[in-house]
Design a protein around this nucleic acid. Structure first.
Lengths: 133, 133
DNA sequence: TTACATAGTGTTATATTATAACAATTCTAA
DNA sequence: TTAGAATTGTTATAATATAACACTATGTAA
């Protein structure tokens, strides 16, 4: 019956949750998402976490690890969330995804002395944003 | 009564918990720490989390955000945990603190286009370590 | 030395974040 | 059209983290 929204590769729950995150001016936590989609028939944590996991996996959203919160990817050419960088204001908590080609290239080509080859990185900068400083 | 171990600025609980983390070859989670220090009279989560908070604050340990786990600082000249970088093996889960002066300088002087001034960053690289690849 | 502020401790309870497990449905590709 | 894969719905529970409060220890400045 209810068709999946395969035109953009997202299932029903994935689309509902992505839309919510994408429209949010700030990172959303899993349970905040849950409360906001209960009217759409998503009732339980696993439904939310499953959609989040998938959205992270395909690079539509990113997890801000220091906040346990999720933002939509604003960086269409980030290689499927393999190289993420964020700025986080410690006062107003605003989060921005950083799209800096030089930074991204520098880190993507960084090689560990101990012989480890990196596939992915996540960088979080903290400070005060323009407004707050 | 029991003197605090002020010779090195750590209180009793802080010292017990730091020693455990420092001796561990891998990042430790808060409840793993709790189970391991109960014989020393630390009984409840808040005691562990308070010590962890303080140890992070003074730079003796770092939190690996993607794992909710803690490691001792191996990098005596990292400016009190203001600039941290780690390599994490996705297979064996080994974590190493990266001490790379060039990397550290590059990131510490990185300036956001949007006018934010950074005070601190945390970088986590993921991949396969020498053994696992 | 006292007394006061600050930091640390111990404790119970609870909040927050995340997953296990299982049955059913929907989608996709052959 | 049918089998495998992905998704959904659901209940229960695990794992991570903090609130709140009473108390003790410590450092320091009068």
């Amino acid at each position: 019956m209810t068709r999946m929204h395969k035109e953009n590769n997202l299932s029903k729950n994935q689309q509902i949750i992505f839309d919510l995150i994408d429209r949010s001016p700030e990172p959303l936590k899993a349970y905040t998402i849950l409360y906001n989609v209960q009217k759409k028939g998503i009732n339980a944590p696993p439904q939310v976490y499953r959609a989040l996991d998938k959205l992270v996996e395909i690079g539509k959203i990113h997890k801000i690890e220091s906040k346990n919160a999720f933002v939509a990817c604003k960086n269409s050419d980030c290689e499927i969330s393999k190289a993420t960088a964020f700025s986080i204001c410690e006062s107003c908590e605003v989060v921005d995804e950083i799209s800096d080609v030089k930074l991204s290239k520098y880190l993507s080509s960084f090689n560990h002395k101990k012989g480890m080859k990196f596939k992915r990185f996540n960088l979080e900068f903290f400070g005060l944003c323009k407004k707050c400083k």
